[in-house]
Each structure stands twice: as C-alpha cells, then as structure tokens.
C-alpha cells in the first residue's frame, strides 16, 4: 500500500474529489445557523480537523506498540508520519476554533479545560518530533519514539473527555453540552450530514497524507543509507 505509485495516485484523486464535495456541502448544503451566522460553517472542518488530530496520535500509539513487538521499521515510519500530520490537523483545529470563538465567546482564547488539555497534548507531540531530531542511531530513535508515542498518548483521552469531565464553555458535539457551554446550537439533519461527511473526508485525507508521508520518509532513508555507505567505503 505504501510503496505502490498506483495506490497513492488513486488515493490522491479520491481525496481531492471528497474534499471538493465536503467543501460544497459546507457552503451550499448546510443551512446558515441563526444565532451565530456564517461563522458556524467553520464548525464542520474544525470538528473534522480536531478528530483527525486525535486519531493520528492514536495511530502513533498503535504503531509504537506494533514496532516494539515486531521491530519492523515501517511501523516507526508510520508513527513518525502520523505525529507530523496529526500536529498539522491539531493546529488547524485550534486556529479555526479560535476564529469561531471570537464571535461566539467574545474572545480568541481562554484557558478552558478543553483548550488547555488540547495545548498540552500538542506540545507533547511537538516534543516527540524534537526527541527524534536529537537521536542519531535509527534503532535507538525508533525504540525511544515508540515508547514516547505510547506514554504520550495518555494526553489524548484526557483531551477528548475533558469537556465531559470538567465544567467548560466548550460545546460537546456528541452527547449533551454542560450548563456552562457557550456557542451551542440545534443541529439540523443537513448540518449533521455535513459534519459526518466532513469527518469521513478528513479521515480519508489523513490516510492519503500518511501514505505520501511514509513514501517521503522512504526517500529520505534511501539518501541517508547511501551517504552512510559512501562514507564507510
């Protein structure tokens, strides 16, 4: 799957098509929400981006476990690629949420439990990338990264459940929001369909990026191996 050019090309085309449909649904199919106006449309891709961020870190967790068990290098590549992609989606989620929050909460940012745990989680995975940069030996780097990816994953369920455990102004999409939540709205059927389709589309975008990122990692390793071989010759 990761090595095949054909699979990557098909996946790229399917992803582009889904993204076009999802964008059209957000702007032309979902109705305008009455209390927040046009900015509510940010919600669809905000939820999808945040979901993919969390899912990507879960993939790193699983990849870490499988790597430690099998020692197969591909799982280290998947774990690394997944953190990088997950961070991009996490930043997208945070930035779009902040833009939505300005008219909905009257502030760009607040140290609410969800936003705080989300930030800590993002920093934990930034540190993952820094840790990898600091280790030269590939086997040691893969082992450390796998363990870090497993331990660091504890931040993901804490972030996910933070809005259900603590009193927060962040709305809950699945299940009811608490009393303190601000910016909640009644989700009509087209809104729900658009949200679910956006989440599905972003999940496919993630798989597509993962395949392409692992291929890029492969190229980087070929260059590195050639350098080592030439230096030792």
């Amino acid at each position: 799957m990761f090595k095949s050019d054909r699979v990557a090309q098909i996946l790229n085309l399917v992803t582009a098509g889904l993204l076009l449909v999802a964008t059209a649904m957000v702007f032309f199919y979902a109705p305008t929400e009455v209390t927040m106006g046009a900015v509510q449309r940010v919600f669809y891709f905000h939820v999808a981006a945040a979901w993919v961020g969390l899912a990507a870190f879960m993939v790193t967790f699983v990849a870490g476990l499988v790597y430690l068990r099998t020692g197969k290098h591909l799982w280290d590549q998947i774990g690394h690629a997944s953190v990088e992609i997950g961070l991009v989606f996490t930043v997208m989620g945070a930035a779009s949420g902040s833009i939505w929050a300005r008219p909905a909460w009257n502030t760009w940012w607040t140290w609410d439990p969800r936003l705080t745990t989300y930030t800590i989680m993002a920093l934990i995975y930034v540190a993952y990338l820094m840790l990898r940069q600091g280790l030269d030996d590939p086997d040691r780097r893969a082992r450390f990264a796998a363990i870090y990816g497993i331990v660091g994953f504890i931040s993901v369920p804490i972030t996910f459940f933070s809005i259900r455990i603590w009193r927060t102004i962040h709305p809950v999409v699945v299940g009811g929001s608490g009393d303190a939540a601000q910016g909640t709205f009644h989700m009509t059927s087209p809104m729900l369909q658009t949200m679910l389709f956006s989440v599905f589309t972003f999940s496919v975008v993630y798989v597509c990026l993962l395949v392409n990122r692992v291929r890029l990692e492969d190229l980087a390793e070929r260059v590195e191996q050639l350098k080592v071989r030439m230096l030792s010759a």
């Binding site: 305008t32 209390t35 940010v42 891709f45 939505w100 008219p103």
Partner: peptide, 18 residues
C-alpha cells in the same frame, strides 16, 4: 442573525492555508 462572514473567510483561509 449577526454578520460573521469575515470570520468565516478567516477560518477557511486557515483551514486550507495550513
């Protein structure tokens, strides 16, 4: 309904720009 169109534009600029 408030006019929040500029925030929508900014939001999608970030969501596609990043």
């Amino acid at each position: 309904t408030p006019d929040t169109f500029n925030y929508l534009l900014l939001g999608y600029a970030v969501l596609f720009g990043l």
